[in-house]
Structure formats: C-alpha cells, structure tokens
Computed example of a mutant assay.
Amino acid sequence: MKKWLRIILVLVLVSIIGISIYKVIGINEEQTKEQFKEQQGKRTFQNSHPATGMSVNDEKVKVFQDLKETDLKSITSKNDITVINLFASWCDPCKREMPELVKFSKKKENGVELIGLNVKDKRKPAEQLLKDVNVNYNVYVSEDDFLKKFKTYNIPTTLFVDKEGKVQKVYLGELTEKTLHNLVSQVKEEH
C-alpha cells in the first residue's frame, strides 16, 4: 500500500511541477509578444542609407489601376511627408506588413500621405494581394531602374520624403502601424 501511495504522490508532484512550468512558459511567451510590440513602437531609423538626400521628384511611376504615367513630384509636393513603401507580392514581409499599413493609413495625420510602390512584380499577383488586403492607400508601379537608382536592394523598404521630394530617411524592413507612427514623428521632429 505504501508503494502505491508513494507512486501516486510522485505522479501528483510531477503533474503540479509540469503544470507550473507550462504556466510560466505561457506567461513568458505572452510577455515576449508584448515586449516585441512595445519595442517595435520604439524602433528608429538605421544608419544613413545611400538614398538619403536624393530627390524622387523626377521619377516616373504608373498609377496601379490604369497604368497612367505620372511623376512623384505631383504626389510629394502636396504633402509635408510622403511615406513611400516599396513592396512586391512575392515578398513575405511585405505581405505581413501590408495590413499594418492599412491601419496606419486610416489614422494618418494631416500633411502625411502613404503610398505603395510596387517593384519587380507581376501584375496579377500584385493585384490579388492588394485586393486580399483591401488596401486603402494609393499604389503605383515603379520603373525598372528605381531600385537600382535609389540603391535599394531589399524590400520592404520605406522612404520618408519631404515636400520638395528629398528623401529624408529610409527604413529597411517590415513595419507595424505603431512603428510607422513613431518614425513619422521622428521625421517631423528632425525636419
């Protein structure tokens, strides 16, 4: 009888320890997710990008819907800050950040405009992505040499451009809505 009692006590003790470890891991995992979201909101620009200081005003782009040609100057001159997000439908981080950009666009400040710039992509998959995400900001298609000219080799990349068309800052990588609001504030404070 004593042997069975010991076995039962050991099983109960092991169960209690197992449940405790499981709960602690769950709590830590949730804290880690919250800490990541908080850190994302505080992220800043990396070191200077070669495109910083360049002008986008003479660049020709096409309106995504009808492929009418326009230049970026007609867009940037209307805004204090134009946020140009370079993306492609084959880019997984681009796909992940797009719903965050939609949220940002709903709450953007006056004088700030977000536009998408589709690069090195095929029309049908890009069209499907925009439809799936229900994009609520203007999207354009870049000329093939845009990435090369602005020394941008990774996407997503986001350019922060002033009213004169000058690239003030460049952000490499995936954005969250919170990070994007933070970065726009930084650009406003600095310029």
Rank of each mutant, 00 (worst) to 15 (best):
K78D: 13
K78Y: 11
A51H: 00
D58T: 07
K60E: 14
N57E: 05
Q46A: 14
F45E: 08
K42C: 05
K62G: 12
T76H: 05
S48N: 15
V61M: 02
H49M: 03
I75S: 04
I81W: 00
N47D: 09
E59Y: 03
E69T: 07
H49V: 01
N79C: 01
T76M: 09
G41H: 08
G53Q: 03
D66R: 07
K68V: 14
V63L: 13
G53E: 01
N57S: 13
E69W: 04
Q39S: 09
N47Q: 07
G41W: 03
V61N: 13
S55E: 00
F45K: 01
K42L: 02
K68M: 13
N79E: 14
T44L: 13
P50F: 00
F64L: 00
L72D: 05
S55I: 09
V83H: 02
S48V: 10
T76W: 06
L67E: 11
D58F: 05
R43N: 12
Q39H: 14
K73N: 12
F64K: 01
F45N: 05
T52I: 07
L67N: 06
M54E: 06
H49I: 00
N79W: 07
V63S: 10
P50C: 09
Q39C: 14
E69Y: 08
K68L: 15
M54A: 13
Q39V: 15
K78F: 11
Q39R: 11
T76V: 10
V83I: 03
K78A: 11
K60I: 13
I81V: 07
I75P: 00
V63Y: 14
T76A: 10
E69L: 06
G41C: 04
L67C: 14
T52K: 12
T70P: 10
N47A: 12
T82S: 05
V83G: 11
L72Y: 04
T52M: 11
A51P: 03
D80F: 06
T44N: 10
S77P: 07
G53A: 03
F64Y: 00
E38N: 09
S77A: 10
E38H: 05
K68T: 14
L67G: 09
L67A: 13
F64M: 01
G53I: 04
S77F: 03
D66F: 06
T70D: 02
K42E: 05
V83K: 08
A51I: 02
K62H: 14
A51K: 05
Q65E: 15
Q65M: 15
V56R: 01
N79A: 10
V56Y: 07
V61L: 10
F64A: 01
T70C: 15
G41N: 00
H49L: 01
G41F: 04
I81S: 06
V63H: 10
K73H: 14
